[in-house]
């Protein structure tokens, strides 16, 4: 059973998402972004209709991504558990809403043009994490 966060976990979600017609139906995209869970950093690359790769990165790697989403490990865990119990993120758990609700937000970027990619593809990114609903997860 994959552990969140780990490459294995994101790879499993990646496979599930890529096989989901609704994920592809949201349209093509081209972005890379980081997921920051405490000290752990994962980079995801999206291209065309798929998530093409996941990789571990260090802090310097954050300079190479369009943007990254940062939450404390407990918040991430609660977010994933919510998706798993609900099937999808509900209205209060979309990334856009979380960003606006959390003090200081969760969306970070050093470049306004690249930060804008979050808004261009936020539904695809959301659907990617919704695919975690079917992934048995340990923390």
């Amino acid at each position: 059973m994959p552990v969140f966060p780990s490459i294995e976990w994101f790879d499993t979600v990646r496979t599930a998402a890529n096989e989901t017609p609704e994920f592809r139906a949201l349209g093509s995209n081209e972005t890379n972004f980081g997921v920051k869970v405490g000290d752990q950093l994962i980079r995801l690359d999206f291209y065309a209709f798929e998530c093409v790769s996941v990789a571990e990165i260090d802090e310097d790697g954050l300079l190479d991504v369009d943007f990254y989403l940062e939450m404390e490990p407990e918040r991430w865990q609660s977010f994933i558990q919510h998706i798993q119990s609900n099937g999808v993120a509900d209205a209060q758990h979309t990334f856009n809403t979380l960003d606006l609700n959390e003090p200081g937000g969760i969306l970070r970027s050093h470049d306004p043009y690249r930060r804008n990619n979050f808004f261009r593809y936020h539904l695809t990114i959301q659907k990617f994490f919704d695919s975690a609903a079917a992934v048995e997860t340990t923390y």
């Binding site: 209205a91 979309t94 856009n96 306004p112 043009y113 804008n116 990619n117 979050f118 808004f119 261009r120 593809y121 936020h122 539904l123």
Partner: peptide
């Protein structure tokens, strides 16, 4: 929710061109 979420993606595309 869907209306604004979808419109947001479109708008971000326009911003990307503008920038």
């Amino acid at each position: 929710k869907v209306m604004f979420a979808r419109a947001l993606q479109d708008k971000a595309r326009h911003t990307a061109y503008g920038l």
